[in-house]
């Protein structure tokens, strides 16, 4: 079964057409990396899949359930809010800028949604949060506030916070782009561990090493379109399209 099925997505911001008919399907346990130059629409695509942005046309299904469908007149129509809320809970999201809650401790950040959204008991939520903190290597920061953490630590907390909602799919929006270079490794390692546990992952990234090593499939986007996609070894060593070649030669040179 497809975990994510996005068909013919169009999205424009005022006069700027950001997505021009994108279709993307992701299978269970698959790790897909989306690469491409900035402004290519890759983050927008991720945000559309999670309904942080409303699409203009197209349809999106999550685990076989429609979230937005195209009606006969060609316009997209979202299902009702309570269904969207339920469908979205299957997806966890990690942002470039972490977006931790600054007024809550590390533990408080992680247990907040499980308690108030899922109605979990506080003790259960804490137990699960502690397990997740051990997993991301931050159990000793349990009672720290986000302001006391490094960027890499913040992002690992953000990943733990998303995992605490037991998602089936994890969306990563340039998770290492705001980090100092020496801090990206710790975040990528956590993501690699997740991939090895067969979490379904969709990762927008500039980390070519990660895309090559961890992804099952690499999608290259440029100018609102998917130009090329395939296994990482094919994309990286044998790109077919000129734009892919140009992009890769630029980023791999550095």
């Amino acid at each position: 079964m497809n975990m994510i099925r996005a068909i013919n997505i169009y999205k424009r911001f005022k006069d700027l057409e950001v997505l021009k008919g994108i279709s993307l399907e992701i299978k269970k346990g698959e790790v897909v990396a989306i690469i491409g130059p900035s402004g290519s629409g890759k983050s927008t695509l991720l945000r559309c899949i999670n309904r942080l942005e409303i699409i203009d046309r197209g349809s999106i299904e999550i685990e076989g359930e429609p979230m937005v469908v195209t009606d006969s007149s060609g316009k997209s129509r979202y299902v009702k809010e309570s269904d969207i809320r339920r469908i979205r809970k299957k997806m966890g999201m990690v942002f470039q800028s972490f977006n931790l809650f600054p007024h809550k401790t590390v533990l408080g950040n992680i247990i907040e949604a499980p308690i108030i959204v899922n109605g979990e008991k506080k003790e259960d939520a804490i137990r699960k949060a502690e397990k997740l903190l051990i997993k991301v290597g931050l159990i000793d920061k349990r009672d720290s506030y986000p302001s006391q953490l490094s960027g890499g630590q913040k992002q690992r907390v953000a990943i733990a916070r998303a995992l605490a909602m037991n998602p089936d799919i994890m969306l990563f929006d340039e998770p290492t782009s705001a980090l100092d270079p020496e801090l990206t490794g710790e975040v990528l390692k956590v993501m690699k561990d997740l991939a090895q546990e067969h979490m379904t992952m969709l990762v927008v990234t500039h980390e070519m090493g990660f895309a090559r090593e961890v992804a099952d499939r690499v999608v290259f986007m440029d100018n609102g379109e998917i130009i090329e996609e395939g296994r990482p070894e094919d994309i990286f060593s044998n790109p077919r399209h000129a734009r892919t070649q140009a992009f890769l030669s630029q980023v791999l040179q550095m």
Binding site: N50, L52, R85, R88, K89, M91, G92, M93, F95, S97, F98, N99, L100, F101, E112, A113, I116, V117, N118, A158, R161, A162, M165
Partner: peptide, 12 residues
Amino acid sequence: GQYESADVLGMT
């Protein structure tokens, strides 16, 4: 970003 992260965590 605070609204967005609350939103994706399922908060009303």
